[in-house]
């Protein structure tokens, strides 16, 4: 299939997600969502677990053009099952036309996706639920003040990892966990690479079954940088190899954009307040080397060099 998105000029030049939302200025998650919504369109029901994005729809205001359902943090994929079933039943009864069918789209943060919501996601994939899952990954519990989540990267300072070495854990490999279920489609993306993102949404939109995508969402508020740098930070995550852009399909993982040469991870880390303790008052050479080595090892395994 040839993608309709070959060049940046092919990206939508008008947008359908409403403005006026209460998300922070420069929110990388909102940027990705509006890029996604432009392509996925308005014919869907969004099932949203608690997190920053639940604030998008506060009665009577919503940026969406279709229905939206709020669920508890753990249960958005279960909510999606209910909505999917309801739509199927209505069609079977002839109460809605098949042309009026809607896509069911789960929207959750990383905290929900990697933690509380993981088992309901797993079960939904097992049942081969026909749904779309967008996880916006701001690498922490953003809405409650950026506590660490299972997606927080090693050494990042969060509200609950304030020690000299930051978060002691390692970012969970949600892509691998999801892909291990062998669903229809899994991908990673970032709003700063809109063409790559558009192609993935375009492709997944044409499929049926579980289609899941993790979008790295630079978060000026939680990560500590000037809002205008959101796109630059997202791009650096890709250029340093920290955020691999890839997709899983038919049992295979393909990397969709490989940076050569890769920039040193420092160029990404040093621009964010949450990693400042790696540079000041003195450089934490050991931790910096560890982070660099992990990234290098990942790409060595992929590229065989």
């Amino acid at each position: 299939m040839i993608s309709a998105f070959q060049r940046l000029k092919d990206l939508p030049s008008s947008h359908i997600l409403g403005s006026g939302t209460p998300m922070c200025a420069g929110c990388g998650g909102l940027e990705a969502l509006h890029e996604i919504y432009d392509i996925i369109g308005e014919k869907n029901v969004i099932v949203n677990a608690a997190g920053c994005m639940t604030l998008l729809s506060i009665y009577p205001f919503t940026p969406f053009r279709g229905s939206w359902l709020y669920t508890a943090m753990a249960s958005a994929p279960a909510g999606a099952q209910g909505v999917r079933d309801a739509l199927d039943i209505l069609q079977k009864k002839g109460e809605i036309d098949t042309a009026e069918d809607l896509e069911v789209l789960v929207l959750t943060g990383d905290g929900s996706a990697n933690g509380m919501g993981l088992s309901s996601t797993s079960a939904a994939i097992d049942r081969n639920l026909d749904f779309f899952y967008v996880c916006y990954d701001n690498e922490g519990y953003g809405n409650t003040g950026q506590q660490y989540s299972a997606a927080t990267p090693h050494a990042a300072r969060t509200a609950t990892s304030r020690g000299v070495h930051g978060y002691p854990g390692y970012k969970k490999d949600l892509f691998a966990i999801w892909a291990a279920h062998r669903p229809e489609y899994v991908a990673t993306a970032v709003g700063a690479e809109p063409l790559d993102l558009a192609r993935k949404i375009e492709k997944a939109k044409k499929m049926k079954g579980p289609r899941l995508i993790i979008v790295l969402s630079p978060c000026p508020t939680g990560w500590g940088y000037d809002p205008q740098e959101s796109v630059e930070i997202g791009r650096l995550a890709v250029k340093t190899g920290i955020w691999p852009l890839k997709e899983y399909e038919d049992g295979k993982v393909v990397h969709t954009k490989i940076s050569r040469p890769r920039l040193p991870v420092e160029e990404y880390l040093s621009r964010q307040e949450r990693f400042q303790h790696l540079f000041r008052p003195q450089r934490d050479e050991q931790l910096l080397a560890e982070i660099q080595n992990r990234v290098d090892a990942y790409w060595q395994a992929i590229e065989g060099r």
Partner: peptide
């Protein structure tokens, strides 16, 4: 139920004041 019957009503909120 608090249903919203119009699209993109968030545009009524003037977030330009944050600037």
């Amino acid at each position: 139920a608090p249903a919203i019957h119009a699209a993109a009503t968030s545009e009524k909120l003037i977030t330009g004041q944050w600037r």
